Amino acid sequence: MKLTDKQWEKLKDLIPDGVKRPDGRGRPWRDKREALEGILWILKTGAQWSHLPPVYPPYQTCHRRFQQWQEQGVMQRVVEALARDLHERGGVDLSECYIDGSFCMAKKGGSSVGKTKRGKGTKVMAVTDAGGTVLSVSVESASPHEVKLVGKVLEERFIEPLPERLIGDKAYDSDPLDQALQQKGIEMIAPHRGNRKKKKTQDGRKLRRYKRRWKVERFFAWLFNYRRCVTRYEYKVENYKAFILLACMLILLKPFMR
């Protein structure tokens, strides 16, 4: 998967160069842009590393660079830098944000894998702003209810400011969650569940914002266009999260595709 020159211009200073030996020996490092494009081809196609086409560096090189960047936290820093730049340019609207989660089957097990009625898997949580720009993602076990995962996905947000309002579906109808978010200055807006026994707490006028919740669902549609994110094949949850972050990086770079 090839990056445009504009996209690479945004990334080149965020991707670290290879470390050179003090004695000058050893093979020179492959170009970091070529290695990144090879990794992105794996992300886009969902293929095995050994199927990487010869137009890219050897798959061993790309896989090794992927592991190094994941361990160094490069993917997280890149996405945070892109989101922060967008926010500073006035491209982020925190007046109403949307939250949702999506189940992903985990084929090889590993950490952060939980049992559900759909099988063993992982839950990808996401928060987007009013325009649908991704602001945070987290990868957790699929077993806990989504209400219990809200705090973690907010902690892992890409920019410092918190949302003013957080809009979710009926799964987020929880008085304890409302109170916890109020302490952070966030208003939770979610339709009441049909079996709710306590008195209603939501204002019907504010619930009109719920009709725009499709924006977070659109983000998941974009995310799962990258086939390596659809099903988790990575035993280590950190590797799967790294692919999720790379997909978020490409989504944030869409305005620079030409």
Rank of each mutant, 00 (worst) to 15 (best):
K2T: 11
Q7T: 03
W8Q: 05
I15R: 02
P16Y: 05
V19Y: 11
P22W: 08
G24P: 12
R27N: 14
P28N: 00
R30A: 12
K32A: 00
A35L: 15
I42S: 04
T45C: 07
S50R: 15
Y56W: 12
P57Y: 12
Y59Q: 06
T61V: 15
C62W: 04
F66T: 01
M75L: 09
Q76K: 14
R77L: 05
V79R: 03
A83E: 04
D85S: 15
H87E: 15
R89I: 00
L94Q: 10
L94S: 09
L94I: 09
S95H: 13
E96Q: 15
I99N: 03
D100I: 02
K107G: 01
K107W: 07
K115I: 04
K117E: 08
K120Y: 15
K120R: 14
G121K: 02
G121A: 02
G131D: 13
T133I: 02
V139I: 14
A142G: 09
E146T: 10
K148N: 14
F158H: 04
F158R: 00
I159Y: 12
K170S: 14
Y172W: 06
S174I: 06
D175C: 00
K184Q: 15
A190V: 07
P191D: 12
N195G: 09
K198D: 14
G204A: 13
G204C: 00
R209E: 01
Y210K: 07
K211I: 06
K211W: 00
R213P: 12
K215G: 01
V216L: 10
E217Y: 10
E217P: 05
F224S: 02
Y226R: 06
R227S: 05
K236Q: 14
N239A: 12
Y240F: 15
L246R: 04
C248G: 04
P255H: 10
F256E: 05
R258I: 02
